[in-house]
Amino acid sequence: MAEKSFESLVLSQSDKLRKGTMEQFIDIWKLCANELLEYYDLDRLTVFPNSVILLRDHKTLSYARNNTPSLQKQDYLSINGNHERYLKLLNMRQPYREFNEQSLKTTDQHVLRRLYQQGGRWHAIIPLHFFGAPWGAISVANFGRGNDRFNEQKAQQIRVVAEMWLCFWQYAGLHLGLRGNNGRVTQDTDNELMVKLSDKQTKILSLMAQGLSAKECGDLMFISPRTVESHKYRLQNVLGLSSKAELVQFALRNGLGSTLNNK
């Protein structure tokens, strides 16, 4: 770890993010990501949501330093959907989950196995939250070498920084999406559409934004998966959207995914 304090790291990150414009967010974030990797002597990091839909829609951030291979998402997709099991690793109570060289080598989990095949020798996953709800995770990895000095304190520090990134990223994406988005969606029309939704439709939209399947939504709401699918198509008609991915984007843009309440 670098000699400067964690407080200095956070202040440096905050300063970079505050002074940049929303249009510059990705470029500024790359500077922040490189700084964090150097501070903890890591090779690559990825920030990703726990929604398969959003993963397919390129809602990830990834950065690699030195001669580390950059993340190519298609390399980690499997034909049989085994890669989706990786998201289930986020269902943990501990602050992080760590994989050494041996566990990466012998795993039957597609994403971890591919990481090993590409030279990954150590990997950790740290869950992230947004407004009190699970959002996704930041994963970190070393290539060609292990990491026997990682601990809970470092994982918590990385989480703090990543959740700060998440706030800036979500806000920048929301603002630019409302201002641009091919002229199709504006804040005013979103508000007009939201008032047309019933409580049940709003609930289903929230669950979908969390990446739940029709069966999982149905189990939580005590209705059948077929009924959930019917509501999904009605939602598309009411909102003038053409796909489930657009429904999820609408939900997140209007804060439904972040304020999910399953009670």
Rank of each mutant, 00 (worst) to 15 (best):
residue 32 C to N: 12
residue 241 L to S: 10
residue 238 V to G: 04
residue 126 I to Q: 02
residue 13 Q to I: 13
residue 47 V to T: 07
residue 249 Q to K: 14
residue 227 T to A: 10
residue 167 C to A: 14
residue 201 Q to S: 05
residue 17 L to T: 05
residue 39 Y to I: 06
residue 159 R to H: 07
residue 14 S to L: 15
residue 98 E to T: 14
residue 40 Y to G: 02
residue 205 L to W: 10
residue 179 R to V: 11
residue 189 T to I: 15
residue 88 K to I: 04
residue 174 L to M: 12
residue 3 E to Y: 13
residue 30 K to A: 11
residue 15 D to G: 02
residue 221 M to G: 02
residue 131 F to V: 11
residue 198 S to V: 05
residue 12 S to W: 13
residue 252 L to W: 15
residue 119 G to T: 06
residue 259 T to S: 14
residue 198 S to N: 06
residue 178 L to D: 09
residue 123 H to Y: 13
residue 51 S to E: 04
residue 121 R to M: 06
residue 166 L to E: 04
residue 231 H to T: 00
residue 154 K to L: 07
residue 166 L to Q: 05
residue 123 H to I: 03
residue 153 Q to S: 14
residue 167 C to T: 13
residue 113 R to K: 11
residue 237 N to V: 06
residue 78 S to E: 12
residue 248 V to Q: 00
residue 155 A to Q: 08
residue 17 L to R: 06
residue 178 L to M: 15
residue 197 L to W: 04
residue 259 T to D: 09
residue 16 K to Y: 02
residue 176 L to N: 06
residue 60 T to G: 03
residue 104 L to F: 01
residue 60 T to I: 15
residue 174 L to K: 14
residue 235 L to C: 02
residue 94 Q to H: 13
residue 179 R to W: 15
residue 48 F to S: 03
residue 69 P to E: 06
residue 78 S to G: 11
residue 93 R to M: 06
residue 185 V to T: 09
residue 204 I to P: 06
residue 15 D to K: 12
residue 177 G to L: 02
residue 35 E to T: 10
residue 146 G to E: 13
residue 115 L to W: 02
residue 230 S to G: 11
residue 199 D to K: 14
residue 153 Q to M: 12
residue 234 R to T: 13
residue 107 T to R: 00
residue 90 L to H: 07
residue 217 C to Q: 15
residue 28 I to H: 02
residue 116 Y to E: 08
residue 259 T to V: 12
residue 171 Y to E: 15
residue 122 W to C: 04
residue 68 T to S: 09
residue 261 N to R: 13
residue 252 L to T: 10
residue 108 D to L: 06
residue 30 K to V: 08
residue 148 D to G: 13
residue 159 R to A: 13
residue 48 F to V: 14
residue 118 Q to F: 04
residue 228 V to T: 00
residue 248 V to C: 07
residue 47 V to N: 03
